[in-house]
Design a protein around this nucleic acid. Structure first.
Ligand SMILES: [Mn+2]
Ligand SMILES: [Mn+2]
Ligand SMILES: [Zn+2]
Ligand SMILES: [Zn+2]
Lengths: 149, 149
DNA sequence: CTCCTAAATGAGAATTATTCCTATTTGGCT
DNA sequence: AGCCAAATAGGAATAATTCTCATTTAGGAG
């Protein structure tokens, strides 16, 4: 990781009021590098290559804190394991049930449509944090990506 | 359960090519009675009152089969336990993170909007089974319902 | 820079959620 | 009524996550 990225991540943590520890920096960095919404265990495998001393328990604890601090998004799934996303921009998820993959789908026009639709709605007894569109289905060729145009 | 409901559920199972066993009838019936997207364990608790011999393992197996047969929908969550829905009509879910509640939100206009939006999209390498809007946030008063109008 | 302390971590036990195994039972068919 | 493939009960096994506690560390104070 470049010195620049490392410093940037430290700042993100500090600004959020979190100690910039090695496990936290390493986990957040790995998550930022990934676009596949990894699980705690997958992140631990990757982090372990550079920092073999980071424990799986710490990865779980770190992720909990990062989610709490809104530095990381926790993705909804149909079971299995918890999955995480460091991409906080508004986007949708394509869930492939057969492969357990979660692929990002960016569509500013759709985001706008939904935002406007809810803008004129009255929501009571609830504080909305985000609205997410889930596209569920089955990937045909597991090796290639899904495209929507 | 009325004789009518009982017969109806038996037919649903038969039509799906599933043996109409007591555990299946009881689980599907309980799930149909509920609008709170219960977990396997919650369903087992409820089913046990009428049929104490139905095991938790069977509830898990039954739910797996019902999902496979498209008689039941498996809801996406941010972890904890798997949750189920017998309501197969197109609708949205309001996720209350603090209370773990999942409330239905019906909005035909929104369904239409999304359906039309995707109607003119080309999706490749993917067979879409459903598109679901998740409204995430925190419930203010846990005792009363959330409303969106 | 060194010291101090609250906060975070590593290691492993414990808990929770789910799946698997196998002897027994049962629903649906003849 | 009898048959048998399929499903179940009960319990063991596994997977995923959380907890406990002795030790370490980040970051502020001096
Ligand atoms: Mn889950
Ligand atoms: Mn689990
Ligand atoms: Zn994403
Ligand atoms: Zn629902």
């Amino acid at each position: 990781m470049t010195e620049k990225t490392y410093q940037h991540i430290k700042e993100l943590l500090s600004e959020a009021g979190l100690k910039a520890t090695h496990p936290r920096i390493a986990v957040l960095h790995e998550l930022m590098l990934s676009d596949e919404h990894p699980s705690a265990e997958q992140l631990h495998d990757r982090v372990s290559r550079q920092y073999p001393s980071v424990s799986l328990g710490s990865v779980y604890r770190v992720l909990e804190k990062l989610v709490e601090a809104d530095l990381v998004y926790q993705v909804a799934t149909r079971g299995g394991s918890k999955r995480y996303d460091a991409n906080l921009e508004q986007h949708c998820h394509i869930y492939s049930i057969n492969t357990e993959e979660i692929q990002d789908y960016y569509d500013p026009e759709l985001n706008e449509l939904i935002k406007n639709y809810f803008h004129e709605k009255q929501v009571s007894n609830f504080k909305i944090t985000d609205i997410k569109l889930q596209i569920n289905g089955e990937k045909r060729d597991p090796k290639s990506k899904v495209t929507i145009v």
